Amino acid sequence: MAADTTGLTENLAQVVTDFHELPASERLNLLLEFSTDLPDLPPQYADHPELLEPVPECQSPIFLVVEVEGQGPQAPVSLFFSAPREAPTTRGFAGILHEGLNGATAEQILDTPNDIPGRLALTELVSPLRLRGMAGMLARIKRQTKDKAAL
């Protein structure tokens, strides 16, 4: 089955395509790669974790914050995540969202379909609860983007 990349940023479309091109037995390894590629928090957030928003839908403690440079639909957005290394699935989902959406415009983020977790071809490999956690991350990214870009 072909990957559905409709409405995705170029980077997120590539991530979805990469998952679909792998046999199911290798998809979890790719998810783990994203967990190791998630950047560390910059000092302004590492030193002030209270500035990050928790994502209670996740089974592991994950926090995120969005920075928007300016206002309006074309304002570029930066994403920052705090996820424990002992939670590779959750951290992998954060890594996917970072890879796919970091640097996108506010409009691109707000236009990102909510069904991203289901498009990754992981539904047979990862529990629905974990997929809901990724959906919770995306919902918070969108809300913070909308608020900070004044849209």
Results as ranks from 00 to 15, higher is better:
Met1Trp: 11
Met1Pro: 12
Met1Ala: 15
Ala2Glu: 15
Ala3Met: 02
Ala3Asn: 04
Ala3Tyr: 03
Asp4Tyr: 08
Thr6Ala: 09
Thr6Asp: 14
Gly7Thr: 10
Leu8Lys: 07
Thr9Gln: 06
Asn11Lys: 15
Asn11Val: 06
Leu12Asn: 01
Gln14Tyr: 05
Gln14Val: 10
Thr17Glu: 13
Asp18His: 12
Asp18Thr: 13
Pro23Met: 09
Pro23Ser: 10
Pro23Asp: 14
Ser25Leu: 13
Glu26Arg: 13
Leu30Lys: 10
Glu33Ala: 08
Phe34Cys: 02
Ser35Glu: 06
Thr36His: 13
Asp37Tyr: 09
Asp37Arg: 15
Asp40His: 14
Pro42Cys: 11
Pro43Thr: 06
Gln44Ile: 14
Ala46Gly: 11
Asp47Trp: 06
Asp47Cys: 04
Asp47Val: 02
Asp47Lys: 14
His48Pro: 09
His48Val: 10
His48Ala: 15
Leu51Val: 11
Leu51Gly: 04
Leu52Asn: 00
Leu52Ser: 01
Val55Met: 00
Pro56Trp: 05
Glu57Arg: 10
Cys58Lys: 01
Cys58Tyr: 04
Gln59Arg: 05
Phe63Ser: 05
Leu64Asn: 00
Leu64Glu: 02
Val65Gln: 12
Val65His: 12
Glu67Pro: 00
Glu67Lys: 13
Val68Tyr: 01
Val68Ala: 11
Glu69Cys: 08
Gln71Glu: 15
Gln74Ile: 08
Gln74Met: 12
Ala75Lys: 05
Pro84Gly: 13
Arg85Ile: 14
Ala87Cys: 04
Ala87Thr: 06
Ala94His: 02
Gly95Asp: 01
Leu97Phe: 11
His98Arg: 05
Gly100Trp: 05
Gly100Arg: 02
Leu101Ser: 00
Ala104Gln: 08
Thr105Gln: 09
Thr105Phe: 03
Ala106Met: 05
Glu107Gln: 15
Glu107Pro: 03
Leu110Ser: 00
Asp111Tyr: 03
Asp111Met: 08
Thr112Glu: 07
Thr112Asn: 06
Asn114Leu: 12
Asp115Trp: 03
Asp115Leu: 07
Pro117Asp: 09
Pro117Ser: 06
Arg119Thr: 05
Leu120Asn: 07
Ala121Cys: 04
Val126Leu: 01
Leu129Ala: 11
Arg130Glu: 08
Arg130Gly: 02
Leu131Thr: 02
Leu131Asp: 02
Arg132Asp: 12
Arg132Lys: 14
Met134Cys: 10
Ala135Pro: 09
Arg140Leu: 13
Lys142Trp: 04
Thr145Phe: 07
Thr145Cys: 05
Lys148Thr: 04
Lys148Pro: 00
Leu151Arg: 00
